[in-house]
Design a protein around this nucleic acid. Structure first.
Length: 876
RNA sequence: GGGCUCUUAGCUCAGCUGGUUCAGAGCACCUGCCUUACAAGCAGGGGGUCGUUGGUUCGAAUCCAACAGGGCCCACCA
């Protein structure tokens, strides 16, 4: 045979992927079929494939490939995201390494570098997805900064502005001092950090008294503009209306009273720094306090920092604590754990900062999006446990800060024509802006050169929230045939970590711009963790190299490995051995193929065992199909795969193939051969979404004769009603066969030595299944008897009793003991059932079927006891 | 601090609206086998009082309560 005995993924994967591409199987155009659409969660354009991508793209591919086989017009739109902060940070770092600063080269030159970077590294991840086998429609590949995608974003911005939903406001926002941009609330993570609570004494003006405040951030005292106490706090009543002196800078500030202050915390006395704390800002507004910002954009101290000017905030904190102590202001310093906001991207500690930013008002947008999930069910979250999380966020939604002080991204289409804060217009193009500006300013002579476009760009999510619409041109041409056909998409597969960042906002955009949800189902995968449950991350170095895995185990092996333990919504504990399991499975299928492929076919009558085995397997396949459909309908991909795994490995390979296998060197009859091939084909169809490469490879050997018959576009098997009698008959037979094998093992009887078998057929099974027992248990002679033969080993299946006559080697005492144990167990069982049945309350209150079942159990047990007693008597 | 969720074999998990086909699966483990598709394999086997305590019920892994211990999300207490 010229077929290698080990499956070699490397050899076939590249070949079939090119074959699929060459024949355009992944490309979709609108037609009369029902569409099945997925838009990929666009990965960062300069990113590389990690385990999370592997998992969710494998799931998407399984769904898409299956839908394609089910006759739907499957369209999986791939693409990438410009990832404003991340990409800009990378480019800045690269330039810095070359001794170039972003500001020195200016916006345009910087963007050129960024585009170069994007073109050099961009799309690598898409090539990696091909290695995984993803059946994306590559002709539809999109990038969030493609001209049409960008235009869609700008148009939406202008539209929302005109609706009054986008506004510019001076607010306390999250400032990332490292990236030097603001962040939305969602981009801030809170971490517990060990720090100190400093108790600092402020001298009261006009007395020798002092008031002690507690703070975790002593460096901000330079921005203090008040000290606040609770109006009812009797400890401080005497301070009302007084003034205190801020240590170090000696500024005199008022003592104010406000119920916001908690009397229990710290000293019950709060320093108020309106520029650097959201609550303090609110207090400042309320009490008309001065706002003193003491930081530069990189969070070093500015001129208000006095002799600490230019020093980093954390360094300044230590230095200032030392100075306060030295000068006697520091009363106490205790260790304290508090929550610190950090940047999602740079992990820098966030600084609350007041500035002018653009906001999107969310309340109105959130309403339909909330109803879609919780009321109408137009969008279903899988697993549904995320419904509550979603509700909570939606109901407490805050306005979205959409401006970023970056250059890489869609620039905000606001144009300033004058010095005033309100001297601006918003328009899609500079030309349109000029016209609007002339009208608004009342100055028809305004020149284009006098307009200054806003320097900021939009949050990346402000473009990705339109993704399911804009990839089909649905923003720019709302009524085009593509968007009308593909939208709403079918399923979205992504991680729960971006439920708010992305999923929720897409739903809002969907209702705002299409009056329809962007997708019907959101499948939220778990996080990929390592064996110690640690999240896989680059910094921990615990994430395996995705491409290395593919080359070690094959794409199919890795796909199976990932899916085997990926119950929806559960985190998945990844280890390489799972991929090994997947690769082993691939090899198993490969070898089944080798066996079948090696058979010589002859025109001969079909053996009864083969006929029966094939009939049974058809029923079994039908049964498995129903289970698989059920799992898919609940998005239990992992369970669907396990059903197929067991079907193929156990039922097909271990049972059916052993049943039909001709004796060594003998040919197989044509009828059996054809039937087995057909069943093998059905197995391959089921395997294909999970293991596309292996299944296509084998399929091409045994089934395909032309590109129109490729497995990738073959049809998914249809479920019928399986023959229940065949299934139960086979299960019974399987038990008999296993029992004979157990006897062989116990007694050390070689398989080659044929045995005889006698049956007390209480169950009236009949001889129909004997051919299978004969073949698989190597039994040469099976006969039904009326009475237990002497000198035989025995076993029972239900109330049937089986005997293997073995003169001389039977230990009668041991047999008696075995039967006694079974008898005891069965009597105990019967007793418990009878106890239940004699309980009137059970008989009267339990449902009829349950009672009937109990009666049946009792009579079965009685029958079995009878057989056992007979055998026991015989042995004696 | 609020909300959600989980705790079933060594590991990872199924067990839907309570009733012996519910005590399961895969992996791991143990014992035989290099049997002519496959040792990345074949055949056989052991293993859990379903976190703890109480309650509801004729009957609970399955419902309720409390407790213990995980996890997730949200939240401005310096």
């Amino acid at each position: 045979m010229d077929i290698p005995s080990k499956y070699d993924p490397q050899r076939v994967e590249k070949q079939w992927y090119s074959y699929w591409l060459e024949h355009g199987y992944f490309h979709s155009e609108p037609d009369g079929r029902e569409p099945y659409t997925i838009v990929i969660p666009p990965p960062n354009v300069t990113g590389v494939l990690h385990m999370g991508h592997m998992l969710n793209n494998t799931i998407q591919d399984v769904l898409v490939r299956r839908a394609r086989m089910m006759g739907k017009n499957a369209c999986w739109v791939p693409g990438t995201d410009h990832a404003s902060i991340a990409t800009e940070a990378k480019v800045v770092a690269k330039l810095r390494a070359e001794g170039i600063s972003k500001d020195s080269i200016g916006r345009e030159a910087f963007l050129e570098h960024a585009w170069d970077w994007t073109h050099n590294y961009g799309g690598v991840i898409l090539e990696q997805l091909k290695k995984l086998g993803c059946s994306c429609d590559w002709k539809r590949t999109k990038f969030t900064m493609d001209p049409d995608m960008e235009q869609s974003v700008i148009r939406v911005f202008v539209d929302l502005y005109e609706q009054g939903l986008i506004y510019r406001g001076y607010r306390m926002v999250n400032w990332d001092p490292e990236a030097q941009t603001t962040l939305s609330d969602e981009e801030v993570n809170y971490e517990e950090r060990q720090g100190f609570l400093y108790h600092i004494a402020y001298p009261v003006v006009g007395s020798d008294q002092k008031v002690v405040i507690a703070t975790t951030r002593p460096e901000t005292i330079l921005g203090d503009t008040a000290v606040c106490v609770h109006p009812d706090d009797e400890r401080y009543t005497h301070l009302h209306g007084k003034q205190v002196r801020v240590p170090i800078c000696d500024r005199v500030i008022p003592v104010i009273a406000d119920p916001y202050v908690s009397m229990e915390f710290g000293t019950g006395c709060l320093k108020v720094t309106p520029a650097h704390d959201e609550n303090d800002y609110v207090l400042g507004q309320k009490h008309g306090l001065e706002i003193i910002d003491i930081f530069n954009p990189d969070a070093s101290l500015n001129a208000y920092g006095l002799h600490y000017r230019g020093m980093d905030r954390f360094e300044a904190r230590r230095a200032m604590a030392a100075e306060l102590e030295e000068k006697g202001f520091l009363v106490k310093q205790e260790t304290y754990v508090n929550k610190v906001g950090t940047s999602e991207r740079t992990h820098a500690v966030i600084e609350p900062r007041l500035s002018d930013q653009w906001f999107l008002s969310m309340e109105e947008l959130a309403k339909p999006a909330l109803d879609a999930v919780l009321k109408s069910g137009e969008v279903k979250l899988v697993p549904s446990k995320f419904d509550n999380t979603y509700r909570h966020w939606m109901e407490n939604i805050r306005d979205w800060n959409i401006s970023r002080q970056l250059w890489w991204g869609q620039r905000i289409p606001a144009y300033y024509y004058g010095p005033g804060k309100e001297d601006y217009v918003v328009a899609e193009t500079a030309e349109a802006a000029l016209e609007k500006a002339r009208a608004r300013s009342g100055n028809p002579g305004l020149k284009a050169a006098q307009l200054r476009q806003d320097e900021d760009v939009l949050d990346t999510w402000f473009s990705s929230w339109l993704w399911p619409i804009s990839v089909f041109g649905g923003i720019l041409e709302p009524d085009n045939p593509e968007v009308n056909y593909y939208y709403p998409t079918s399923d979205l597969v992504t991680g729960p970590d971006i439920l708010f960042f992305w999923v929720a906002r897409m739903i809002m955009a969907g209702y705002a711009y299409r009056k329809q949800p962007p997708f019907h189902t959101v499948y939220l995968t778990g996080l990929v963790r390592d064996k110690q449950r640690r999240k896989m991350s680059k910094s921990l170095g615990n994430s395996p190299d995705a491409l290395q895995l593919i080359s070690d185990y094959g794409a199919d092996g890795v796909r199976v490995g990932l899916l085997l333990s990926a119950a929806a919504g559960n985190d998945l504990l990844f280890e390489e051995s799972l991929c090994q399991q997947g690769a082993n499975f691939a090899n198993k299928v490969w070898n089944a193929f080798r066996l079948v492929h090696g058979w010589k076919v002859a025109d001969a009558p079909q053996p009864e065992a083969a006929r029966l085995g094939i009939a049974w397997y058809r029923a079994r396949l039908g049964e498995a199909l129903l289970e698989i459909e059920d799992h898919f309908s609940k998005y239990r991909i992992s369970d669907a795969l396990m059903v197929i795994y067991k079907l193929v490995w156990d039922d097909f390979c271990s049972w059916l193939l052993e049943i039909v296998k001709p004796a060594y060197g003998q040919p197989i009859d044509r009828q059996t051969y054809d039937a087995v091939i057909a069943l093998f084909e059905d197995n391959l169809r089921l395997l294909h979404p999970f293991m596309p490469f292996l299944s296509e490879e084998v399929w091409q050997y045994i089934a395909a004769r032309s590109p129109q018959e490729a497995l990738v576009i073959a049809s998914w098997p249809r479920a019928g009603q399986p023959d229940a009698a065949l299934l139960t008959g086979f299960d019974f037979t399987r038990e008999v066969i296993s029992a004979v094998r157990t006897i062989r093992k116990d007694k050390n009887l070689p398989f080659k030595e044929a045995l005889a078998l006698r049956v007390l057929d209480e169950e009236q099974i009949g001889p129909g299944w004997d051919v299978l027992i004969a073949k698989l248990a190597n039994v040469s002679d099976i006969a039904r008897v009326e009475q237990a033969p002497e000198g035989a080993l025995s076993f029972r299946v239900k109330s049937n009793e089986y005997f293997v006559p073995l003169q001389g080697s039977v230990d009668v005492a041991a047999e008696i003991e075995k039967i006694r144990e079974e008898l005891n167990y069965t009597r105990g069982f019967l007793a418990s059932v009878q106890k239940k049945l004699s309980n009137d309350r059970f008989v009267s209150s339990a449902p009829e079927q349950v009672v009937a079942l109990e009666r049946k159990k009792a009579s079965d047990a009685e029958a079995k006891i009878e057989t056992l007693e007979k055998s026991l008597a015989n042995l004696r």
